[in-house]
Design a protein around this nucleic acid. Sequence first.
DNA 1: TCGCGCGATTGATAATTATCAAAAGGGGGA
DNA 2: TCCCCCTTTTGATAATTATCAATCGCGCGA
Lengths: 232, 232
Amino acid sequence: MRPSDIPEIRALRLFKSMSDSAFEALIQAAYLQTFPAQLELIREGDPADFLYVVTEGRVELFARANGREATMGMVHPIGTFILAAVLKDAVYLMSARTCQKSKVLMIPAENVRAAFEADDAFARAIVVELASCYRSVVKEHKDLKLRSSVERLANRLLRYHADQGANGTLELPYDKRTLASLLGMTPENLSRAFNTLKPYGVQVKGTEVTLSDIDGLTTLAKPNILIDDRTS
Amino acid sequence: MRPSDIPEIRALRLFKSMSDSAFEALIQAAYLQTFPAQLELIREGDPADFLYVVTEGRVELFARANGREATMGMVHPIGTFILAAVLKDAVYLMSARTCQKSKVLMIPAENVRAAFEADDAFARAIVVELASCYRSVVKEHKDLKLRSSVERLANRLLRYHADQGANGTLELPYDKRTLASLLGMTPENLSRAFNTLKPYGVQVKGTEVTLSDIDGLTTLAKPNILIDDRTS
DNA sequence: TCGCGCGATTGATAATTATCAAAAGGGGGA
DNA sequence: TCCCCCTTTTGATAATTATCAATCGCGCGA
């Protein structure tokens, strides 16, 4: 693996506080691989063989049932996924595929569990990480259960807007089909939801969005810190 | 607190492996209280002051936004709730209220965090617990995103049926209004969903349900181990 | 530069789910 | 035992969301 990647991984909340020796052992056992776009990295139902760390590119977590498919989340560099399955030595609940060409570090699950047993600091870091993941899913669940699709979109736009500097414009981080699935709606519905938001100053051109009436949009969206805030 | 409750709490996965001294310290700091039905124990947005353990009765976790309310989960004896917020020293994401007269052990959050720092076995037990909670919410999220309301009901009935001995009958564990909210629908819709399931051998009388065509119902429900199995 | 292909949009319609109102049914207390 | 209250159910209708089909439009490659 490229040595320059290591410090960034080491700096992750998950690995920051663990001992050098334990971290070394993890990295030594790991594989760094580059995958093309649209490659299925893991499939739900398979045993959790690896913990994944995305170092470049983008990975989509999704799930299938009946004939339907739903995007469950997106993983950006530098981020990990599928930690809970690895720790429980269980099967994956979600599938994952690359959205674009991506570089991924794969740490064998048994090494992760060994480090978890051996290194107390790592075990504690995992707790913090898992607690965060848990709260994120709870927020997504509330989003889905308590809001209409237009409200979900409005709040998502406000979130991206804030993330990107709150200067009145934002760029959609994913294509619209993926965004739709992430928001729990069809692409057609997303398109219509954008139209619904036009009177609230939302202009879309490709992946560029301009917000000319933040107050109006906010009134409609009624953002809620207990759903939309990603930091707590 | 009643001494006879202690062994059961001690036997919880969360507390089983921790040291006697750390467990003692937790219990000593804790309050055991009995609450009447329909009492709001915690409110989302409030700082997490206590970890809760339900020892008798039943507690509903729910969330509010806009004017809507959704049941997020039910906690039965002996079960804990709101662990992630306590560990992160964050605000609660969910509210909780008693469904019936309930006995609840309240462990001050700072004691939990102290035990987490001091006791490695406890820290590891927390990891397992959190990983399980996380996977449960992911499953609920998949349930909501990938299934229609009738499918959700059908699968829920099959689950209760299996839990209760799979003898062709089951008892709904909650009133229908609560069940509806748990399944992400209105009470009216739940009533109609039961009617939709009549041709599949589902007979409802109050909280008693008989299933006379398990195969047919299963064909409709298409249960999925990655959504419906509570043990993995 | 010119199509070609694919994602996105629009239109028409259907299915699902929610809302509002009213009636029915059942259990507990007087 | 009867009545009242509250949950549930039913009915009518509206809103939301999905589906299917067709068109649009933009970027890429020949």
